[in-house]
Simulated scan of single mutants.
Amino acid sequence: MNKDIKKIADGIRRRVLEFTIRNGGGYLSQACSSAEILATLYTKLMNIGPSVAPKIPPAFTGVPSKNNREYFSGYGYNGPKEPQLDRFFLSPVHYALVLYATLVETNRMAAEGLEMFNKDGFTVEMIGADHSPGHELMSGSLGQTISQVLGIALARKRKGETGKNWLVMSDGEFMIGQTWEAIETLSFYKIDTVNVIIDANGQSADGKIDTVNQIEPLKKRLESFGAVAAEVNGHDTKQLIDAANTPHESKPLFIIARTIPYQGIEILKKRAPKFHYIRITNEQEKEELQQFLHERFGGDGQ
Rank of each mutant, 00 (worst) to 15 (best):
N2L: 03
K7A: 07
D10R: 12
G11T: 09
R22M: 08
G24S: 08
L28N: 00
S29V: 09
S29D: 12
C32K: 07
E36K: 07
I37W: 08
I37Q: 03
A39H: 08
T40N: 04
T40H: 02
L41A: 00
L41E: 01
K44V: 06
L45P: 00
G49K: 03
P50N: 13
V52R: 00
I56V: 15
P57H: 09
V63H: 12
K66I: 14
Y71G: 05
F72S: 05
G76R: 01
Y77W: 07
Y77A: 00
G79W: 08
L85G: 11
D86L: 07
F89W: 08
H94Y: 12
A96N: 11
Y100F: 10
N107D: 15
A110W: 02
A111L: 14
E115D: 15
F117C: 03
K119W: 02
F122W: 10
F122P: 00
T123W: 01
E125G: 07
I127K: 02
D130S: 10
H131I: 09
P133V: 03
M138W: 13
M138K: 12
G140A: 09
G140H: 10
S141K: 09
L142Q: 07
T145W: 06
S147K: 04
Q148L: 10
V149W: 12
A153I: 12
A153W: 12
A155S: 15
R156D: 15
K157R: 10
K157G: 07
W166D: 01
L167K: 03
V168T: 13
E173L: 13
M175S: 11
G177H: 14
E181T: 14
A182V: 12
A182M: 06
Y189G: 07
I191V: 14
T193Q: 09
V196L: 07
I197H: 05
N201Q: 11
N201D: 12
G202C: 05
G202Y: 02
G207F: 08
K208C: 05
D210H: 08
V212W: 08
Q214N: 06
K220A: 13
R221T: 06
L222V: 02
G226W: 10
V228R: 03
A229R: 01
E231R: 14
H235L: 08
D236R: 05
T237L: 01
Q239W: 02
I241T: 00
I241N: 02
N245M: 13
T246C: 00
S250H: 14
P252R: 09
T259E: 07
I260N: 11
I260R: 03
G264F: 04
K274I: 15
I278V: 06
I280W: 06
E283Y: 11
E285M: 04
E287S: 15
G299M: 11
D300E: 11
D300Y: 04
Q302N: 14
